[in-house]
Amino acid sequence: MFSFFKGNSITTSELQAKLETKPEVIDVREKNEFASGHIPGAKNIPLSKVTSYTKKGEEAVYVICQSGMRSRQAVKKLKAKGIGAINVKGGMSAWRGAVRGGKL
């Protein structure tokens, strides 16, 4: 019954280990949140605009927000479009890796 959800999320440490292969990471927070600090190489596509996202290729896209709630919504929207999307559990609140931006 719950196998539908299997493989739909990873932890921040699992994502950090994957960054060497340069996966596509989408940050669905608003622009000001993204500017305050994001994963290097992540694309900022706010949740309100995620349905306009198009993906080339078969590789999964990793979706992150601040806590994991908006990214979970975004994953549902992307999967409905046929895009392989994976939620990053805990979001930037749980992220312990390198961060770009956020310098005032």
Rank of each mutant, 00 (worst) to 15 (best):
L104T: 08
L104M: 10
E14H: 05
Q66C: 07
V50H: 04
K6P: 00
V75P: 00
L47R: 04
R29T: 07
G37I: 13
E59R: 11
G37S: 13
R70W: 02
C65S: 12
K18M: 15
N32E: 15
V63K: 05
V50P: 15
W95D: 03
V99G: 02
F4W: 10
A42Q: 10
A17K: 10
S36N: 09
A74Y: 06
E14K: 10
S13P: 00
T11H: 03
I45K: 05
Y53F: 15
G97H: 01
N87P: 05
S71K: 03
L104I: 07
T11D: 04
N32R: 09
G101E: 05
A60C: 04
A74L: 08
K43W: 01
N8R: 13
K77C: 07
K49L: 12
T21S: 12
N32T: 12
T11N: 04
A17Y: 00
N32S: 12
S67Q: 11
T12H: 00
A35P: 11
K56S: 14
R70G: 08
A17C: 02
L15H: 03
P23M: 02
S67G: 14
F2P: 10
E20V: 03
I86E: 09
K55P: 00
A74G: 07
S9N: 11
E14R: 01
V25Y: 03
G37V: 11
K89A: 13
I64C: 12
L15Y: 02
K81W: 05
T54C: 08
M69R: 13
I26K: 01
N32H: 14
M92P: 10
M69S: 15
S9K: 09
V50L: 04
A17L: 03
